[in-house]
Design a protein around this nucleic acid. Sequence first.
DNA 1: ACCCAGGATCTAC
DNA 2: GTAGATCATGGG
Length: 296
Amino acid sequence: METLILGKLKIEKTDDSIQVYGLKDFNLIHIFECGQCFRWKKTLDDGYIGIASGKMATVYFDHDILTMKNTTIEEFVNFWFYYFDLGRDYTQIKDELSKKDLHLQRAVEFGSGIRILKQDFFETLISFIISANNNIPRIKKSVELIAMNYGEMIDLDNFTFPNSLKLKGIPCEELSLLSRAGFRCRYIEHTSNKYFNEQTDIKLLSTTSLEDARKILKEFTGVGDKVADCVLLFSGCRQDVFPTDVWVKRVMEELYFGRTASLKEINEFAKVHFGELSGFAQQYLFYYAREHRIGL
DNA sequence: ACCCAGGATCTAC
DNA sequence: GTAGATCATGGG
């Protein structure tokens, strides 16, 4: 296949890559540095390389053209289009959020090219278990170590993230030595075994009530409200969640409350104020808050 | 030496 | 049901 029209997008094949024309609301830095993913790395030539659901690709975005190496038009249509959430109209989402208040308008403008990735469920679950009481560089290191030690090698420095079949049965002592994830390794061990045995019904998570979805996820050790909401949002299950970490808490207190507020308060505010778009609002606010170091 | 980091868990009230 | 200590690890 040499060329393809997909809605407003035109996809063309070149020698060793594909190019996508007609993309809006798309910025690689916003997408990969907004805290939703841990495995995309900058390349020397201003692109990003990453592995998602076992597929590796290098991406560039220049002059409104997305260039992807190491993939095909078929794979783009069948996977990357979905992964980058390209079927969603972010212009409308941003318009709707910008109308709500001035803070959100600024945050949306600042992260105008954010797209919420539809990441592999098990990888997202493990990654955000590791995120508990941790910092982003160390989360990235532990996730990468798990891939290096238990995933499949694509080339000398790129590995897939292992599925639960690969990770089940690994004792937490070994996980601790090979991932440096500390006390969270006990959670990883339990979660890998439980997920392998039960194969969580992901479709159910997206169709049932938010309350029930959280309840299901919180049966994995190491998963509380915040991690559950992150997994639901960043694996593409649902967008009506408002993961409230220390950054989001701080930015909400500073911009919306003008005082300290409890997690429960913030969640209820988000539900009323942001509604079904809570997840998108959270991502714009998180990126804005962290890049501006609000609250520090 | 002390504090902190995309929190969750366990215990005590 | 909820405040408080505890949980590895590495960097400032």
